[in-house]
Write a protein that binds this DNA or RNA. Sequence first.
DNA 1: ATATTTACTTACTAGTAAGTAAGTTTGCCA
DNA 2: TGGCAAACTTACTTACTAGTAAGTAAATAT
Lengths: 183, 183
Amino acid sequence: METKDKIRNLAEELIRTKGYNAFSYADLSAPLKIKNAAIHYHFPSKEVLGASVIEEMVLGFQQLSSSWSDQSEKEQIEWFMDIYRNSYEKGMVCLMGSLAPDFETLSPAMQAQIQRMSRVILDWLTACLEQGRTKQVFQFKGEASDRALVLISSLISSLSLSRVQQTDLYSRIRQQLLSDILA
Amino acid sequence: METKDKIRNLAEELIRTKGYNAFSYADLSAPLKIKNAAIHYHFPSKEVLGASVIEEMVLGFQQLSSSWSDQSEKEQIEWFMDIYRNSYEKGMVCLMGSLAPDFETLSPAMQAQIQRMSRVILDWLTACLEQGRTKQVFQFKGEASDRALVLISSLISSLSLSRVQQTDLYSRIRQQLLSDILA
DNA sequence: ATATTTACTTACTAGTAAGTAAGTTTGCCA
DNA sequence: TGGCAAACTTACTTACTAGTAAGTAAATAT
């Protein structure tokens, strides 16, 4: 892997463990055994690095969710929830869960990227729920978009709450969310 | 109000808008027209200030929730949700939503306080849901404690997501959460 | 073979962070 | 009236922040 990707990947990890405002260039340069200035060579500023991390995440999600498109809606939702299980197991929160509370402190460019990220995920989730309901795989009251909101908001916080309480709250929340939508 | 309370209140506001790691002593001293060192007089360190903010919040919640005890469980849950509406209207996230993602970067003392805060809120919510179900005010599947987890996690993220999307997602999530538990 | 570009390092800057030691003002108490 | 404590300010320190300018070695292009 190239240095640029190593920097971006480590930055993502740091954002998702310590938060955007709590990590520094030293946290990147030391483990990668490069100098501070090498980061600036690849990413002119911290906000450009941050924006790049989000962009890569959105791209990754779009590819991943596309690869599920021939599976049932139930399985797609379960794969989606598995992303969060994976985060939980690594002791990380998701990118949205980390960046959304810091929204006000971020540059307009990063804010726009975060908005886009939330749009992409919510649109996918809404479409999946809607289609699943049409096919009678799912059963729930209200708009699919509102159901998507409850799902995503609960999953996001399940990771940070699991960390706080040092138990697998993620699995309990996942179970409950699934039983709320399954026919 | 005394200076010490002014400092603590402003600190809470800053944590809930910018996040713990993004606010500085200058953000406190400038608006309060005091000097940096005056904060250190009242709170020896930033972590002591942070812990004090959480302690005050827990105390406030315990008092508030006690004052609801003679009302119906439905009304109690609605009052509880009104706390989040209030936060939404001020453009703030809740203390838990702000501090939980930063958990790893905080001192053991603050971590313990955050754990306590989550316990207090979850215990209250679980008891309220359980009792409401017994009285047939509420109707839901699964353990009350799991239902409480879904409720709180969703409410927490509703605030940060509302900020990101710049719309009142809070109200849509609240509506959906209520319809999921009402008989 | 020469020039240019890529991917850095070295060495630095200006700004900001939390925190501290010592001094000052104000009000109270004996 | 003298002394003392509470609530500060002044002035400072140490540590760290993102960011930059200039230089370099190695690979690539002409």
